[in-house]
Design a protein around this nucleic acid. Structure first.
Lengths: 246, 246
DNA sequence: GACTTTTAAATGTATGACAAATGAAAATTA
DNA sequence: TAATTTTCATTTGTCATACATTTAAAAGTC
C-alpha cells in the first residue's frame, strides 16, 4: 500500500483511503482482519495521525471498516451485510432522484420493470410468511382515514414483501433503492379514497396470483399498476399546472 | 441541526455527519449550497475542528459534499451524479458478493433477470450507436488469442450497451453493480474457444433482435444465455471438485 | 484599463495532550 | 486453588494550537 505525497491535487487522507479501499476490494485485506493502529499507519504512510483518522472515517462511512476502542481494539475490515448496504443504497437513490430531476415516468418505469423481473421467482418461491405480510399490508391499506404517509409506507412494505419473496438477496438489494426512493415521489400524489380502492384491488390480485404461483398474471397486474400509477401522476401534475395557469 | 453530546455510544463525528446528511436528504440543504466553515461548525456543534473535519470526510466519502480550499471556499452540497454513483454501487456490490459468499447462481439469476427487464425498453429505444457498440464488442470477442480478462471486459461492455440502450438512467445505475460486480466471478470460468463461439452466437442474436426491435426474442436469448452461463459455472465447479477429490 | 501584488479566509496537515474504553495480566481474596 | 478485583498498557475519541497551502477578492501599480 503506497501513496504519492507529491500529488498536490488529491488530499492525503483521500489517497490513503483509496489505497486501503483497493487493498480490501482486491482481497489483500480480508474480513475481520485488523488494520495497524492509527499511530502505526501514520508512521507507515509518513503522515500525521489526524490525516490517518480522516482516511479511516472515509472508509467507515462506506461500512468498509468498523472501529473499536481500547486495548486490542482498532480498525477491522467489516463484512458488509446486505442489510447495511440497503441503507446506503436508499440514501444514494433518493438523492439521485431528487437532485437530478428524474421524471416520475423514468423512476416509475425502472421500479416496475425490475419488480416485474422478480415476479417469476417470487411466484415460485413465496412462502406463507410473504403472503401473510402482503395481505396484512392490504388490510392496513383498506383502513379508512389512513394518512397519505402511512398509506405510502404500507405500499412500500407490500412491494418489499413481493421483492423479498423472490428470495434473491442481490435483487432485494438492487431494488431497495428503486422502491424506497420512490416514496417521496409517490407522496406527491394525493391518494383519494377512489384511487386507493383501485390500487388495493390490484394488490389483492397480485397476492392471489402469487398464492397460485401464476407468474405471468402477476406480471400483467404489475404492468397495469405501473400504467395506473403513471396516469395518476400525470393527472396530478396536469391539475397543478392548471392551478398555476389559472 | 442538533446532536446529543451525551450519547456516549456514538462518535460525535458520526452524529454530526448524520445530522448534516439528514438535512441534505430532507432537502433543508440544497445543491451547491455552502456549509458553514469548519470553524463555524465547530462553534455551532460545540466540538473541535478535528471532529467537524472527520464528520465532513465521512460525507465526502459518500459524495454528499465537495470541498474547495481558499477564500470563499468551503464545503458545498454536491449534486451526486449517476456517473459518481456507479462507482460506489460497483464497489459495494463487489464486496457484497465476495464477502457474503453469494453463490454464482444467485448473482447470475439477479443479473440476467434485471437485464431481461431492460429488454423491452432497449428494443424500443436502441439507437444506431448502441448497436454499433454491441457489434464492435462482438467483433472484439471473436479475436483469437484474446485473454480471459479482456474477454470478460468486452462481455461487460456488451451488456452495458444493452442496458444503456433502454435509456433509463435509473435502471443503468441499478444494474451497474450487478453487471460489473459479476466480472470477478465470471473470471473464474475459463472460456475455451468453443464456449466463446457459443456466447458470441448468442450475443449476435441479441444484437440482431434488438436491431429488429423484437423484445420477446431478446428476452428469450437472455434466458438461454443465463442458463448456458450457469451450466458453464456448474461444470467448472464440478471439475474443480473432482480435481480436489482425486 | 490591464496587470500585479497584497491580503484575508478557508481547507489541509502536523503535533501534542488528555479522556475514555477495553481486555489482558497481575494482585487480591475467599 | 478458584474466583474476584485491581492495575495497566494500548488504542481510539476529542481538543487545542500552530502552520502550510490554496484561492479569490481587493488593493495597488503601470
Amino acid at each position: 500500500m503506497k501513496i504519492n505525497p507529491n500529488d498536490a491535487t488529491t488530499d492525503l487522507s483521500a489517497q490513503i483511503a483509496t489505497a486501503i479501499r483497493d487493498a480490501i476490494v482486491s482481497g489483500q485485506l480480508i474480513v475481520d482482519e485488523r488494520l495497524p493502529s492509527e499511530s502505526e499507519l501514520s508512521d507507515q504512510f509518513e503522515v500525521s495521525r489526524s490525516t490517518v483518522r480522516e482516511a479511516l472515517k472515509r472508509l467507515a462511512a462506506q461500512s468498509l471498516i468498523r472501529t473499536q476502542r481500547g486495548a486490542f481494539g482498532g480498525a477491522f475490515i467489516n463484512r458488509i451485510s446486505f442489510e447495511e448496504a440497503y441503507g446506503q443504497q436508499i440514501t444514494t437513490s433518493t438523492l439521485l432522484l431528487s437532485m437530478n430531476a428524474v421524471s416520475f415516468d423514468v423512476a416509475c418505469e425502472a421500479r416496475f420493470a425490475m419488480e416485474r423481473a422478480c415476479a417469476p421467482f417470487a411466484a415460485q418461491r413465496r412462502t406463507a410468511d410473504h403472503l401473510a405480510t402482503m395481505r396484512a399490508e392490504i388490510h392496513c391499506q383498506a383502513q379508512p382515514g389512513l394518512s397519505d404517509e402511512s398509506w405510502c409506507a404500507s405500499d412500500v412494505s407490500f412491494h418489499r414483501a413481493l421483492v423479498d419473496a423472490a428470495q434473491n438477496p442481490v435483487m432485494s438489494y438492487q431494488l431497495a433503492g428503486s422502491v424506497e426512493a420512490m416514496q417521496p415521489l409517490m407522496n406527491m400524489i394525493t391518494f383519494t379514497a377512489r384511487n386507493r380502492e383501485t390500487i388495493i384491488r390490484l394488490h389483492s390480485k397480485i397476492a392471489n396470483h402469487l398464492d397460485n404461483k401464476e407468474a405471468e398474471k402477476v406480471e400483467a397486474v404489475l404492468v397495469t399498476l405501473s400504467d395506473y400509477t403513471k396516469t395518476l401522476a400525470y393527472d396530478v401534475i396536469a391539475a397543478k399546472q392548471k392551478q398555476n395557469d389559472g
